[in-house]
Design a protein around this nucleic acid. Structure first.
Lengths: 142, 142
DNA sequence: TACAAAAAAGATATTTTTATCTCTTTAATA
DNA sequence: TATTAAAGAGATAAAAATATCTTTTTTGTA
């Protein structure tokens, strides 16, 4: 469904969010360990999230990633969009260039429903809520 | 959503199905042209579909791919499963190894709904129906 | 039976994604 | 001010997906 980069990003953002609620910053090493993702790889992915202003970062000793206190409405879709773009919600299910509302491929409407469901779910799922539910979960990739 | 191989497969199967209704076989060249997919690539993908018994093939002059007359209940999910497997319906949305019904990740239930919708759609969409609706559509990849 | 047309099989090449490594910049603090 | 811990940036490497090429097998037909 999502790219690995995106899965990693979601898991990482949840952890950063948890720490941020306690006023803590999270460095790449901790993200790597707790999210179960390779350290140099997630370092790159975090750069994307910082550039998209979904998380903030500070350099130097004691630095790390955090989520701004006023950025309380961060949604899952923001992370997905930043990392994977919006092709999941917009591209034709059959990969057809000409497929559109005006010129729908035969699967167009069926796919639209599915994608709209997915989009709605991602738009209404807040990272903050997830970070509260997920405390007990161990992140280990396949 | 689907791999390119899978998108190609769906488009190709629809074309083969159309021809099969008129008792015609479809060779790789025709599939390539009408589905807008690279010829040597779709040749490989068709082998997967033949091995999965979703389409039949015959070699030699006048040969090609066709769908058995009694295989009238071919569904979209059969093609997706043969080419992409079932990870889209079974894998954790966050890529977590331990996520399961018993030990659900925080997104588990929300993803389950989406995936079940998708699965239901694919299970109820017949290739034969699609092949009738899609006659006018031009297949051109992005 | 020889030829030609077609899929099958296997090898190779290219591109994209995933992953890692090295060096630079920033900033806290001893 | 020197050291150190951290992110940022850029280069490189490995793996997977996509694409192509070559050879073999099958089969219809002249």
């Amino acid at each position: 469904m999502f790219s690995k980069s995106c899965e990693y990003a979601i898991r990482s953002v949840i952890i950063v969010c948890q720490n941020s609620k306690q006023g803590l910053k999270t460095n790449v090493k901790e993200i790597s360990e707790r999210a179960g993702v390779p350290e140099p790889y997630i370092a790159k992915v975090m750069q994307i999230l910082v550039k998209a202003h979904l998380v903030q970062s500070s350099k130097g000793p004691g630095g790390g990633f955090f989520i701004d206190a006023n950025n309380t409405e961060l949604k899952l879709i923001d992370v997905v969009n930043a990392v994977d773009g919006d092709s999941l919600f917009t591209a034709c299910g059959l990969g057809l260039k000409e497929c559109s509302e005006k010129n729908p491929c035969p699967l167009h409407d069926k796919f639209k429903d599915i994608r709209n469901n997915l989009k709605k779910m991602l738009m209404t799922t807040s990272i903050h809520d997830l970070s509260e539910k997920l405390v007990a979960f161990t992140y280990t990739s396949k």
